[in-house]
Amino acid sequence: MRFRFAGIASLVVLIASVAALGASPALKPFERGTWQSVLKGHAGRPTLVHFWGVTCGPCKVELPLLGRFVKEHPEIDVVTVSADLVPNLPGATQSMLDKAGLSSTENFIFNDGFVERLRFEIDPSWQGDIPRTMLISRDGIITTIEGSAEISDLEKWSAQQLAKH
């Protein structure tokens, strides 16, 4: 029984590690309801959600800066969402995340062709412009930065979040 238990335990560990491994290189699909799961999953923790896309020029400039921010701010949960309209480029998306030092963050890719509906769930007034960053405080207050974020603003927000704690 003990061996069996050990076997099951190691299986659980194996599955968990495989899932973890899978989550790191594999992008998570962002679908209907994912936004609420993200909010729930990070509730009570300062969270930065960054929307970007592989064809967006300003995103290419901002992504490595965000990578550096992540490294320097382990206390902030960072989630990225590739919000391009056709979510069929996980390879290019992952490659850009890797180059930007964002391999280990929680990374999503839009996986519903009905993007109007996905965006509506996130913010009914968002028409798809990227980059876009949503800063979610511990108490759930969302501050949206349209366009490229100034890293100094992220630093400031991050410091405020820590000070509040």
Partner: peptide, 24 residues
């Protein structure tokens, strides 16, 4: 079982990523 589970996980992820609903 782990391998099967791995394959299942991967299969699900791929299924989701290439599902018909994912396309415009």
């Amino acid at each position: 079982l782990g391998i099967v589970a791995f394959a299942f996980l991967q299969g699900t992820a791929l299924g989701q990523m290439h599902g018909k609903h994912a396309s415009e």
